[in-house]
Every structure is written in C-alpha cells, then in structure tokens.
Design a protein around this nucleic acid. Structure first.
Lengths: 146, 146
DNA sequence: GTGATTGCAAATCTTTTGCACTAAA
DNA sequence: TTTAGTGCAAAAGATTTGCAATCAC
C-alpha cells in the first residue's frame, strides 16, 4: 500500500525518460528521481552527485555530467549560466527568468509571464531568436542602498 | 609629427589607468591600447593574449587574466557570461544587453535604452538589484524558422 | 547476444596562485 | 629604495573523454 505512493512517480519518470529516447537505467532513474520528484530545482553537477550519494543510489560524477547533458538535450532540463566556471541545471523548462543572489550563489525563478520585454531588436541576418534569458543580479548582504 | 596621432590616445589611456588607481605599466598599457583604442569589443583572455602577441607587445597569459580582472574591478570592463567555462570581457560598460550567436560564439551589443523591461518583480528581502542582464540567444545557421 | 551505458582515471580547458625577479614611483 | 607588478610553472576547479566492464532489451 505505502508503496503505491512511490510507484506512481516512479512510473511517470520511466515514461518520461523513454519518451525522450533514453533507457531508464538505474543511474538515470536515480538522478531523475532526485531531480523531478519534487518541485522546481536548480542544481550543479556536484550537488546532484552528493544527493544521489546521500540517497544511497551512487552514480559516478562523470555519469552525472553526461546525464545532465543528455537530459538538457532532451529538453528535460535547462542549463542556466550565471557565472563562468559553474553550470546550474534547472528542472523548470517553462518560459521563465532568474534572480541570482551573488552572495549565496543561489538562483530563484521568476515567472516568464510576469515580465514583459519591449523594444527587442530584430535578430540580425536570418538568425532566429532561440531564447531570451534575463538574469537579475542581486547584491545581497546588509547593504541595501537604493 | 606622425607620432602625434599615436600620442593622443596613448595619453588618454595613461590617464584612464591612473584614474583607476592602476600604474600604467607596459603590460597594462599594451592591453589597454588593444582594448580601448577602437570601438566596443568583446574579448576572451585567450583572444586578448593572442592580440598583444601579434602586436609584438607580448604579455603573459597570467597577466592578461589578472589585468582583465583588475580592469573589471575598476569599472573599465564588464564581464559577460554567456556560457560556462569561458568569460567575455566587454569594453562597453554602459547600460546595454547582448545578442549571443550560438553558432559562432560571438556577442553583439544591444543598446540598453532600446529595451524596456516591465513587470520586474521586487527583489526578495532587503536585497538590491545590482544589474539586469538580458541575453538574446540566436540560433544562427541556415535554419530560419519562425 | 548486442549495442547502449557506466565507472574509472586520465585528459582538457580555463582561470588562479606562489614566488623569485623586474620595473615604476 | 621600496612596493607594485610580472612571468613562469604549478595548482586548482569544472567538465569531458577513452576504454574495458556491465547492463538493458
């Protein structure tokens, strides 16, 4: 009985991977469950690696990286770049933007519908706009000058 | 005589460095001249290193990195992050945004005044907005689907 | 069984750092 | 002279890759 509450998301995740053309291997499942079982998240490869470690479903760091890239290519994740040297992967693939808390290095989602951008220039040549990324950098700390 | 046309920007750059509290050393001058003599530019450390090399005013790569960071701290440059693993430094420190050409890895400026962002949410807590970065990612190539 | 996937360790790439040497004020 | 700045080589950190072993179908 109590297993049912676990089985359902498990199945959904299996299907989610299969729909993306990815075999639901143990490692991919372990990662996907940590990533997708809860709400929207922003994780780094190292973070995710620690989490599956803690969850006793260890996956090598190399596989974590490879899997994050595969998931991203498959549209299951979105890569968010806020600083050179470290990538965040966002489980929210809907249209949205981000607050970046410089102090803590944390990311917070901003609903895409709440922001309107006007005056977007035409893309040069025959290039097409793939995505508009807005990052609002916050200087957190005691300092709150206008 | 023909030297005059070179002397003027040279002096301006010396002053620019001094105003920033940086000694106008040979290396910093070599880098500053390449960076600031022309119009707005976006360079990586490696690129800049190659350029001073080509200009026969070699500067070690370590110094290029250190100098780019110093210039950025001094407000002479702005760091633009469009992809993990590589930083671009922008000589345009005015309010503006960027096109990012995924294919070529190139950046193009978008005047900040031309874009209006509405519906910006309040920053959480007592945090202050430090900057709003907008990157328009372009999928360039033969593909130009709407 | 057969091709996809994984883990490990090594390799890569970008950026930073320690330290002896050199140059600017 | 005295301190800041530079170059080199090594270190550090993130990510990728080659390849033999393992797993999913």
């Amino acid at each position: 009985m109590f297993q049912m509450t676990e089985r359902r998301p498990y199945r959904q995740i299996v299907e989610r991977l299969q729909s993306a053309g990815l075999r639901p291997t143990q490692q991919r499942m372990a990662l996907a469950r940590v990533l997708f079982d809860g709400g929207d998240r922003h994780v780094t490869a190292e973070q995710l690696h620690s989490e599956v470690q803690a969850a006793r479903r260890p996956v090598s760091l190399a596989t974590v990286y490879n899997t994050l890239n595969q998931f991203t290519r498959a549209g299951l994740l979105r890569e968010v770049v806020v600083g050179a040297g470290r990538s965040y992967f966002d489980t929210n693939v809907a249209n949205h933007h981000h607050f970046f808390h410089s102090g803590s290095g944390e990311l917070t989602d901003i609903d895409g519908a709440s922001i309107r951008v006007e005056g977007l220039p035409e893309p040069p040549d025959g290039a097409a706009i793939e995505r508009v990324d807005i990052v609002i950098r916050l200087a957190d700390g005691a300092d709150r000058e206008g």
